[in-house]
Design a binder for these strands. Structure first.
Lengths: 152, 152
DNA sequence: GCCGCCACCTTATTTAATTAGGCACGGCCG
DNA sequence: CGGCCGTGCCTAATTAAATAAGGTGGCGGC
C-alpha cells in the first residue's frame, strides 16, 4: 500500500514541500515524471492531504494559545461543530472517545480575548472546562519510519 | 509589519502551497517577482516557518492518537524534551504554563502500542496522566483575518 | 507461452521561477 | 523647496522545472 520509496518521498516533502521533482527524483533514484506520478497517486489516495505552509502564530499576533476541554451535554455534540465554524480562533479540535469530550486549541492575542472566547463557548455549549496557556515546544507529523514500538 | 497583501498570500498558501507565483501574482495584483520577494521576506522573518505536506496518519498505519498530559516532578522538566527526541510517536507537544505540565499528541497503531509508550513515559518521566484516544475533527492554522473577538 | 498491464524510462514541449535592470513614489536632509 | 537615497514594484530575458507523449521491460493471468 505504501512502499519504501513513497516513504522516502514523504520524508523529504515534510521537511520541505517545495523540493523540486528533479531533486526528489535523484534522491530516491527515479526520473522526475515517475516521482510526479507517485505524488499524484499519494494525493489521490489521500495519503498526502495537502501541501501547505506552517505559519508562526506570533507573527499574526497570536501570542497565546489555549488548550481547552469542551464537554457538551449528551446529545449536544453537534454544538462543537458549530462553534468551530463560527470561531476562527479554533485550531485543531479532536473528539476524544470514552470521555465524550473535545480537546481543542485556541489561538488568542491576550488573556482578555481568551476570556471572551471561553464565555462564548460556555454560553453556547454546555460545560467547557477551560484550561491553560500553551507554549509549543515542538510540532511534528506522525513518524514515517518504523519505531522501537511498532513496525509498519 | 505584515500588510494586507501578505495576509492574502498566506491565506492562499495555507490552502495550497504549490500555488505558482504567477497564480499568486494575479490573485493579489502584483508581478511574480514581487510575490517571490514577499515570500522570501516572509520566510526570512519567520512568518512562514516551513513549506510542508500534511500527511494522513491513518495512511501510515497510525489509526489511533492519544492526547496525554505529562507532569514531571519539579526540576525535571528537561525529561520531556528527552522523551520527545527519543520517541518518534510524539506529535506536537506544548508546555502548559501555570500547571507545570505538558500536553502532547501520540500517534500509535494500537492500544497495545499506546500502553507500551505510556509505560515508557511513566517510567522515565514522573507522572504521566494518560488520557485518551482522539479522532481529529478539524485541523486549522491560526486565523489570518480579523475576528469578532479581536482585530490585528 | 502469449497477452496485456503497470511502472518506469527518455525526449520534447510547455510553463514557471529567477535574474537583471530600470522607474516611480516617499521620506529626509541640505 | 529641491535634490537624493531607499524601497518596492515593474518588464524583459534567461534559466530551470513541470508536463506530456511515446516507448520498453518485467510480471501475473489466461
Amino acid at each position: 500500500m505504501l512502499d519504501d520509496l513513497d516513504r522516502r518521498l514523504l520524508e523529504i516533502l515534510v521537511k520541505d514541500s517545495r523540493t523540486s521533482l528533479k531533486e526528489l527524483a535523484q534522491q530516491v533514484g527515479l526520473s522526475s515524471p515517475s516521482v510526479a506520478e507517485r505524488l499524484r497517486r499519494l494525493e489521490d489516495r489521500g495519503v498526502i492531504r495537502a501541501f501547505t505552509v506552517e505559519i508562526d502564530p506570533q507573527a499574526l499576533g497570536y501570542s497565546l494559545q489555549a488548550i481547552v476541554r469542551i464537554r457538551p451535554l449528551p446529545g449536544k455534540l453537534h454544538i462543537v461543530q458549530k462553534l468551530i465554524e463560527e470561531i476562527p480562533e479554533f485550531g485543531e479540535c479532536d473528539k476524544v472517545t470514552g470521555d465524550d469530550c473535545f480537546v481543542a486549541r485556541l489561538f488568542v492575542r491576550s488573556i482578555g480575548d481568551l476570556d471572551k472566547l471561553l464565555d462564548r463557548i460556555a454560553d453556547k455549549a454546555e460545560t467547557s472546562t477551560a484550561i491553560i496557556k500553551a507554549q509549543p515546544i515542538r510540532r511534528r507529523p506522525p513518524p514515517l519510519a518504523a519505531t522501537a514500538i511498532s513496525k509498519p
